[in-house]
């Protein structure tokens, strides 16, 4: 097996006196679509912030092959990040949003920057939105524009924070297909945080399921295998959308 692209070792997550997860270790291989899963508040987004270097873990280490510990302080970024809300700059057009990292990191004439921006927008199906303001885009379009912006510096690795949350089913499926295409055709490694089960089963090659009560990783591996074969009831509940407390459409009244 090749050396992993990302190695997470003995990570402790939290802030102040609050510890979310302890001794978290896993590896992400090059070319994977890797999903970070778990209930709300279990630390998925915090983990993503550590992986992207936005925050530092309380303890433990993260290594990205060829980069070392993720940092945002030195040089051209080695990966792209799409934030949950898109985080496009509201004072710029969509095209200017994409041109920003290019102008920062590549000495290209304006016409060349513009050509690259248009190509990236075509890639995500937003060729007609170059001169629109982000406020004029729908939720799905914003996310696609944010993916395009995250890809302008040609990274090998991209992090996506809840790409399909808040989208209608058709837009969510389109976004999943876009991610699959980018992964298959460009060899992009994708690490994503998500809640959407259909999306996980469709695109994720492997996943890690975080668990708040035990402060640890509950399960990892191929999500389809975990769904069908896991013996752990919590894993079964998560992947089959059932609740240990809810056995039917309404809660049965307990006998008094």
């Amino acid at each position: 097996m090749n050396a992993p692209l990302i190695t997470v070792k003995d990570l402790t997550m939290g802030w102040g006196d609050l510890i979310l997860l302890e001794d978290v270790s896993f590896e992400i291989q090059r070319g994977e679509i890797f999903a970070i899963l778990g209930a709300s508040g279990c630390g998925k987004s915090t983990l993503l912030r550590y992986l992207t270097g936005l925050d530092e873990p309380m303890a433990g280490s993260i290594r990205i092959e060829g980069v070392g510990a993720p940092t945002l302080e030195v040089g051209r970024p080695a990966f792209g990040v799409m934030f949950q809300s898109g985080a496009l700059f509201g004072s710029m057009t969509v095209g200017e949003n994409l041109a920003l990292p290019l102008n920062e990191w590549a000495r290209l004439p304006p016409a060349a920057v513009s050509a690259i921006v248009r190509a990236k927008l075509r890639l995500v199906g937003l060729q007609d939105s170059e001169h629109q303001q982000p406020s004029e885009l729908s939720g799905g379009m914003k996310k696609r524009a944010a993916i395009a912006r995250a890809m302008t510096l040609e990274p090998d690795l991209i992090f996506l924070d809840e790409p399909s949350s808040g989208l209608d089913p058709v837009s969510a499926v389109e976004l999943d297909e876009l991610i699959l295409t980018l992964n298959a055709d460009l060899g992009l490694t994708v690490v994503l945080v998500t809640h959407e089960l259909p999306s996980i089963f469709k695109i994720a090659t492997r996943c890690v399921l975080l668990d708040r009560p035990t402060r640890s990783i509950l399960a990892w591996g191929d999500p389809r295998l975990l769904r069908d074969e896991s013996d752990l009831s919590e894993v079964h509940h998560f992947f089959n959308r059932t609740s240990p407390e809810h056995t039917g459409p309404g809660r049965e009244r307990k006998d008094v």
Binding site: G53, L54, L72, A87, G90, P101, R149
Partner: peptide, 16 residues
């Protein structure tokens, strides 16, 4: 507003 809408974080992830 940029800070709470993650735009500052986005800027940092672009190495800016």
């Amino acid at each position: 507003a940029m800070r709470v809408s993650e735009e500052i974080d986005a800027l940092r992830t672009m190495g800016i």
